[in-house]
Write a protein that binds this DNA or RNA. Structure first.
Length: 243
DNA sequence: GCGACAG
DNA sequence: ATCTTGTCGC
Protein backbone atom coordinates (compact mmCIF):
# COMPACT_ATOMS: atom_id res chain seq x y z
CA UNK A 1 0.00 0.00 0.00
CA UNK A 2 1.71 3.18 -1.15
CA UNK A 3 0.14 5.83 1.04
CA UNK A 4 1.80 8.85 -0.54
CA UNK A 5 0.63 11.70 1.64
CA UNK A 6 -0.03 15.06 0.01
CA UNK A 7 2.46 17.68 1.15
CA UNK A 8 0.26 19.72 3.47
CA UNK A 9 2.88 22.41 3.72
CA UNK A 10 5.50 23.72 1.36
CA UNK A 11 8.70 25.49 2.18
CA UNK A 12 10.90 28.17 0.65
CA UNK A 13 13.51 30.72 1.57
CA UNK A 14 12.68 32.93 -1.39
CA UNK A 15 11.02 36.11 -0.06
CA UNK A 16 8.59 36.44 -2.92
CA UNK A 17 7.41 32.88 -2.71
CA UNK A 18 7.24 33.12 1.06
CA UNK A 19 4.85 36.06 0.82
CA UNK A 20 2.67 34.17 -1.65
CA UNK A 21 2.68 31.17 0.66
CA UNK A 22 1.58 33.31 3.59
CA UNK A 23 -1.33 34.69 1.61
CA UNK A 24 -2.53 31.22 0.71
CA UNK A 25 -2.16 29.82 4.21
CA UNK A 26 -3.58 32.71 6.24
CA UNK A 27 -7.22 31.89 5.37
CA UNK A 28 -6.78 28.51 6.98
CA UNK A 29 -6.04 29.90 10.42
CA UNK A 30 -8.92 29.26 12.82
CA UNK A 31 -9.64 32.10 15.21
CA UNK A 32 -12.35 30.32 17.16
CA UNK A 33 -11.92 27.92 20.04
CA UNK A 34 -11.34 24.34 19.06
CA UNK A 35 -9.48 23.03 22.04
CA UNK A 36 -10.13 20.64 24.90
CA UNK A 37 -8.53 18.74 27.74
CA UNK A 38 -5.37 20.76 28.11
CA UNK A 39 -2.84 18.69 29.98
CA UNK A 40 0.36 20.06 28.51
CA UNK A 41 1.31 23.55 27.43
CA UNK A 42 4.51 24.19 25.50
CA UNK A 43 6.60 27.32 25.28
CA UNK A 44 8.50 27.74 22.01
CA UNK A 45 11.38 30.13 21.47
CA UNK A 46 14.32 30.49 19.13
CA UNK A 47 17.70 31.94 19.93
CA UNK A 48 20.99 32.31 18.07
CA UNK A 49 24.68 31.87 18.69
CA UNK A 50 27.89 32.13 16.70
CA UNK A 51 26.84 35.62 15.64
CA UNK A 52 23.65 34.19 14.20
CA UNK A 53 25.18 31.35 12.24
CA UNK A 54 23.57 28.76 14.48
CA UNK A 55 19.89 28.69 15.29
CA UNK A 56 18.84 27.28 18.63
CA UNK A 57 15.22 26.12 19.00
CA UNK A 58 13.84 25.42 22.44
CA UNK A 59 10.57 23.85 23.50
CA UNK A 60 9.61 23.54 27.14
CA UNK A 61 6.56 21.46 28.00
CA UNK A 62 4.74 22.12 31.25
CA UNK A 63 1.93 20.25 32.90
CA UNK A 64 -1.28 22.17 33.35
CA UNK A 65 -2.27 23.63 35.77
CA UNK A 66 0.70 22.84 38.00
CA UNK A 67 3.12 24.45 35.54
CA UNK A 68 5.82 21.97 36.43
CA UNK A 69 8.29 21.31 33.64
CA UNK A 70 7.87 17.83 32.21
CA UNK A 71 10.17 18.03 29.21
CA UNK A 72 12.67 20.31 27.52
CA UNK A 73 14.23 20.02 24.10
CA UNK A 74 17.03 22.15 22.70
CA UNK A 75 17.83 21.74 19.03
CA UNK A 76 20.71 23.44 17.22
CA UNK A 77 20.98 23.77 13.46
CA UNK A 78 22.69 26.05 10.91
CA UNK A 79 20.80 29.28 10.18
CA UNK A 80 19.48 29.23 6.61
CA UNK A 81 17.76 32.55 6.15
CA UNK A 82 18.28 36.15 7.32
CA UNK A 83 15.79 38.03 9.42
CA UNK A 84 13.28 39.86 7.27
CA UNK A 85 10.38 41.65 9.01
CA UNK A 86 7.22 39.76 8.14
CA UNK A 87 9.02 36.58 7.16
CA UNK A 88 10.23 35.49 10.57
CA UNK A 89 8.62 32.06 10.39
CA UNK A 90 10.60 31.11 7.32
CA UNK A 91 13.78 31.76 9.28
CA UNK A 92 12.82 30.09 12.54
CA UNK A 93 10.20 27.43 11.90
CA UNK A 94 12.45 24.71 10.47
CA UNK A 95 14.42 24.58 13.69
CA UNK A 96 11.25 24.65 15.79
CA UNK A 97 9.72 21.77 13.84
CA UNK A 98 12.85 19.69 14.21
CA UNK A 99 12.81 20.33 17.94
CA UNK A 100 9.14 19.40 18.06
CA UNK A 101 9.88 16.01 16.53
CA UNK A 102 12.03 15.20 19.50
CA UNK A 103 9.29 15.67 22.06
CA UNK A 104 7.98 12.53 23.72
CA UNK A 105 4.75 14.25 24.75
CA UNK A 106 2.49 16.13 22.36
CA UNK A 107 1.46 19.50 23.81
CA UNK A 108 -2.19 20.58 23.70
CA UNK A 109 -1.39 24.27 23.49
CA UNK A 110 1.56 26.26 22.17
CA UNK A 111 2.81 29.66 23.28
CA UNK A 112 5.15 30.96 20.63
CA UNK A 113 7.38 34.01 20.86
CA UNK A 114 6.28 36.42 18.16
CA UNK A 115 2.97 37.15 16.47
CA UNK A 116 0.00 34.99 15.62
CA UNK A 117 -2.32 36.71 13.15
CA UNK A 118 -1.11 40.16 14.23
CA UNK A 119 0.89 40.21 11.04
CA UNK A 120 0.64 42.17 7.76
CA UNK A 121 -0.68 39.08 5.97
CA UNK A 122 -2.15 37.45 9.08
CA UNK A 123 0.41 34.68 9.33
CA UNK A 124 2.97 35.36 11.99
CA UNK A 125 5.20 32.58 13.30
CA UNK A 126 2.74 31.43 15.97
CA UNK A 127 -0.03 31.05 13.40
CA UNK A 128 2.26 29.33 10.93
CA UNK A 129 3.47 26.83 13.53
CA UNK A 130 0.00 26.22 14.93
CA UNK A 131 -1.39 25.56 11.46
CA UNK A 132 1.50 23.31 10.50
CA UNK A 133 1.08 21.16 13.57
CA UNK A 134 -2.68 21.71 13.82
CA UNK A 135 -2.35 22.49 17.50
CA UNK A 136 -3.97 25.43 19.31
CA UNK A 137 -1.39 28.22 19.42
CA UNK A 138 -0.96 31.70 20.85
CA UNK A 139 1.40 34.41 19.66
CA UNK A 140 3.21 36.09 22.55
CA UNK A 141 5.16 39.07 21.29
CA UNK A 142 7.27 41.55 23.19
CA UNK A 143 6.92 44.33 20.64
CA UNK A 144 4.68 45.43 17.80
CA UNK A 145 5.01 44.35 14.18
CA UNK A 146 1.99 46.16 12.74
CA UNK A 147 -1.27 47.68 13.83
CA UNK A 148 -2.26 50.47 16.18
CA UNK A 149 -3.52 50.64 19.73
CA UNK A 150 -4.29 53.01 22.56
CA UNK A 151 -2.23 53.13 25.71
CA UNK A 152 -2.79 50.18 28.00
CA UNK A 153 -4.14 50.85 31.50
CA UNK A 154 -1.60 50.25 34.27
CA UNK A 155 -3.54 47.52 36.03
CA UNK A 156 -2.25 44.00 35.61
CA UNK A 157 -4.57 42.07 33.33
CA UNK A 158 -5.94 45.05 31.45
CA UNK A 159 -5.64 45.13 27.70
CA UNK A 160 -6.61 47.11 24.63
CA UNK A 161 -7.27 45.84 21.11
CA UNK A 162 -4.59 45.94 18.45
CA UNK A 163 -6.14 46.90 15.11
CA UNK A 164 -4.89 46.88 11.56
CA UNK A 165 -6.81 47.77 8.41
CA UNK A 166 -10.09 47.93 10.29
CA UNK A 167 -9.59 44.52 11.91
CA UNK A 168 -8.83 43.48 15.46
CA UNK A 169 -5.74 41.35 15.09
CA UNK A 170 -4.70 41.00 18.69
CA UNK A 171 -4.56 42.52 22.15
CA UNK A 172 -1.92 44.50 24.00
CA UNK A 173 -1.87 43.04 27.49
CA UNK A 174 -0.44 44.43 30.72
CA UNK A 175 1.01 41.37 32.40
CA UNK A 176 2.89 43.39 35.01
CA UNK A 177 2.51 46.91 36.25
CA UNK A 178 5.10 49.40 35.10
CA UNK A 179 6.36 46.98 32.49
CA UNK A 180 5.94 47.11 28.75
CA UNK A 181 2.81 45.21 27.70
CA UNK A 182 2.78 42.02 25.64
CA UNK A 183 1.30 41.66 22.17
CA UNK A 184 -1.04 38.69 22.26
CA UNK A 185 -2.72 37.29 19.19
CA UNK A 186 -4.45 34.18 18.00
CA UNK A 187 -2.09 31.63 16.54
CA UNK A 188 -4.56 28.91 15.68
CA UNK A 189 -7.76 27.30 17.01
CA UNK A 190 -8.28 29.89 19.73
CA UNK A 191 -10.12 33.20 20.01
CA UNK A 192 -8.29 36.32 21.10
CA UNK A 193 -10.20 36.34 24.38
CA UNK A 194 -9.22 32.76 25.16
CA UNK A 195 -5.64 33.44 24.16
CA UNK A 196 -5.42 36.31 26.61
CA UNK A 197 -7.05 34.18 29.28
CA UNK A 198 -4.51 31.41 28.81
CA UNK A 199 -1.66 33.86 29.03
CA UNK A 200 -3.07 35.31 32.23
CA UNK A 201 -3.51 31.83 33.68
CA UNK A 202 0.16 31.07 33.05
CA UNK A 203 1.51 34.20 34.71
CA UNK A 204 3.38 34.04 37.98
CA UNK A 205 5.50 36.94 39.12
CA UNK A 206 7.06 37.81 35.80
CA UNK A 207 6.22 39.68 32.64
CA UNK A 208 6.13 36.57 30.47
CA UNK A 209 3.81 33.58 30.88
CA UNK A 210 5.77 30.61 32.28
CA UNK A 211 5.96 28.45 29.14
CA UNK A 212 7.39 31.37 27.18
CA UNK A 213 9.64 32.49 29.99
CA UNK A 214 11.17 29.07 30.50
CA UNK A 215 11.76 28.57 26.78
CA UNK A 216 13.18 32.07 26.55
CA UNK A 217 15.69 31.39 29.31
CA UNK A 218 17.05 28.30 27.65
CA UNK A 219 17.07 29.75 24.15
CA UNK A 220 18.98 32.91 24.84
CA UNK A 221 21.74 32.01 27.20
CA UNK A 222 24.72 30.07 26.00
CA UNK A 223 26.36 29.01 29.19
CA UNK A 224 27.78 25.80 30.58
CA UNK A 225 24.67 23.72 30.10
CA UNK A 226 23.95 24.75 26.51
CA UNK A 227 27.56 25.05 25.39
CA UNK A 228 29.37 22.37 23.42
CA UNK A 229 32.59 21.23 25.14
CA UNK A 230 35.09 22.24 22.44
CA UNK A 231 36.36 21.19 19.04
CA UNK A 232 32.88 19.92 18.32
CA UNK A 233 31.55 22.35 15.75
CA UNK A 234 28.99 20.02 14.21
CA UNK A 235 25.50 21.29 14.96
CA UNK A 236 23.05 18.71 16.19
CA UNK A 237 20.34 18.14 18.70
CA UNK A 238 20.37 17.37 22.34
CA UNK A 239 17.75 16.73 24.90
CA UNK A 240 18.23 18.25 28.28
CA UNK A 241 17.55 16.36 31.41
CA UNK A 242 15.53 18.09 34.05
CA UNK A 243 16.79 18.86 37.51
C1' DG B 1 9.14 58.72 -2.09
C1' DC B 2 9.50 58.25 3.23
C1' DG B 3 9.16 55.62 7.48
C1' DA B 4 8.13 51.15 10.08
C1' DC B 5 9.75 46.84 10.87
C1' DA B 6 8.04 40.10 15.48
C1' DG B 7 12.96 37.83 16.59
C1' DA C 1 17.91 38.04 18.02
C1' DT C 2 22.96 39.27 19.71
C1' DC C 3 26.99 42.23 21.27
C1' DT C 4 27.94 44.23 26.39
C1' DT C 5 28.93 47.01 32.42
C1' DG C 6 27.11 48.93 35.38
C1' DT C 7 23.18 50.47 37.73
C1' DC C 8 18.58 51.75 39.67
C1' DG C 9 14.79 49.80 42.52
C1' DC C 10 11.68 46.51 45.10
Amino acid sequence: MTSQRQPLHEWTIDPERAVALQKSLAPRIECQDRISNVEHIAGVDIGFEDRGETTRAVIVVMRWPSLEIVERVLHRTPTRMPYIPGLLSFRELPAALEAFEQLTVTPDLLMVDGMGIAHPRRLGIAAHLGLWLDIPAIGVGKSRLCGQHDEVPEARGSWVPLTHRNETIGGVLRTRERVKPLYISTGHRLSLESSIEWVMQCLTRYKLPEPTRQADRLASRRTAETRRPEGDAAPGQESLSLE
